[in-house]
């Protein structure tokens, strides 16, 4: 596959050429924050975004989606969306999270709804240009993704405003084919890109994890009865904000809804979160995590150990969204892991 060096002007023209041809979802301003949304005009693209309020996983696992349409006689039909679309400008840490969700939704119960969207997507990763206030992807090994596979195009902005555009797949070629006039990246360009990556890895460490990510599972093995869980959970609202903004959280709840004819209806799923009071309530109104400290602890185990045990990956990519989202400031994984580690000594 090819690597091009594209001037700022060529880049803008490329995006303008893409918008009428493809369904693009890209970071744009939402008041003074940023959010992924349908891109219809190139000028609205904000690749200088620091972090999107919600991660782009919402295009694979929407907040609310209809799974089946049914009638009360027992007939039903799955609703599966697979219109092709482009996720344009995904940050590396969010790509790592999406890649993790792909693994999880593909194995065991193959999730047709999720996987149809995943297959329909072309993913354009954009290296981070502006670090957000709480990002620590650099401590988690997720500041850059040049060594990973699974995405289609990689964009890196150089200091002079030009972009290095690396095509990674045939799906990616469909997009970058429109760039054919741009020059191939030379050795100097590639070195400049290395420098950007090195700098990014340094910059995306707004919180410093005092261990390697691989040490977290063993740390948690020893921390189940630590007093920290109850202490921190005192200030917990069970509001689930830390779940809902997290790119690796994937829990959902399923409900049925009847139409006015009282005969037909739809089954939909909607995001859920393990921090919510009723999350672990089962038939008979038994809640096996009815204490907020148990729910609070669960989230960290889910991030640092359970997914590790399942697929060998840490389920925190270091986006920092939970840290900013928690109104009582107790959701910082780095703070929790560091404190557990210090108090083990």
């Amino acid at each position: 596959m090819n690597i091009k060096r594209v001037t700022e002007k060529e880049f803008a023209a490329w995006v303008d050429a893409l918008t009428p041809k493809h369904t693009l979802y890209a970071p744009q301003a939402k008041e003074d924050r940023f959010a992924f949304d349908r891109l219809t005009a190139g000028e609205d693209l904000r690749l200088d975004y620091d972090v999107s309020i919600l991660p782009p996983k919402k295009y694979f696992l929407p907040q609310k989606e209809v799974l089946i349409k049914f009638d009360r006689k027992g007939n039903f039909e799955s609703v599966i969306a697979h219109e092709p679309f482009v996720l344009f400008g995904v940050h590396p840490y969010d790509f790592v999270a999406m890649d993790q969700l792909n693994t999880i939704f593909e194995q065991d119960n193959y999730d047709v709804h999720y996987m149809a969207r995943k297959e329909a997507a072309t993913v354009v990763v954009s290296d981070v240009q502006v670090a957000s206030a709480d990002v620590f992807a650099g401590c988690m090994g997720n500041a850059t993704v040049e060594d990973r596979d699974g995405y289609d195009v990689l964009l890196t902005r150089l200091d002079d405003g030009s972009y290095v555009v690396e095509t990674r797949s045939e799906k990616g070629e469909v997009l970058t084919g429109l760039l054919s006039s741009a020059v191939d990246a030379d050795e100097v360009t590639l070195q400049q890109r290395e420098q950007v990556w090195n700098r990014t890895r340094e910059q995306l460490q707004k919180h410093k994890l005092e261990m390697t990510p691989e040490q977290i599972p063993a740390l948690l093995d020893k921390s189940y009865d630590h007093p920290l869980w109850a202490e921190k959970a005192e200030l917990c609202h069970s509001c689930g904000s830390c779940n809902l903004v997290c790119p690796t959280c994937y829990c959902f709840t399923v409900e049925d809804e009847l139409n006015w004819d009282m005969e037909t209806g739809q089954r939909y799923r909607q995001w859920d979160g393990c921090m919510l009071t009723g999350f672990a309530t089962v038939t008979g109104n038994h809640n096996f995590r009815d204490k907020k400290e148990a729910r609070y602890r669960h989230r960290y185990y889910r991030k640092g150990k359970y997914v590790w045990d399942m697929i060998g990956e840490i389920a925190c990519v270091g986006c920092g969204r939970c840290i900013s989202a928690c109104t009582t400031n107790i959701a910082n994984p780095v703070e929790v892991f560091n404190q557990l580690s210090e108090e083990q000594q």
């Binding site: 919600l54 907040q63 609202h237 509001c239 689930g240 904000s241 809902l244 009723g278 989202a325």
Partner: peptide, 11 residues
């Protein structure tokens, strides 16, 4: 659950 859940879903 609190309004924050729906608020976050609305981004």
């Amino acid at each position: 659950y609190p309004v924050c859940v729906e608020c976050k879903m609305k981004e």
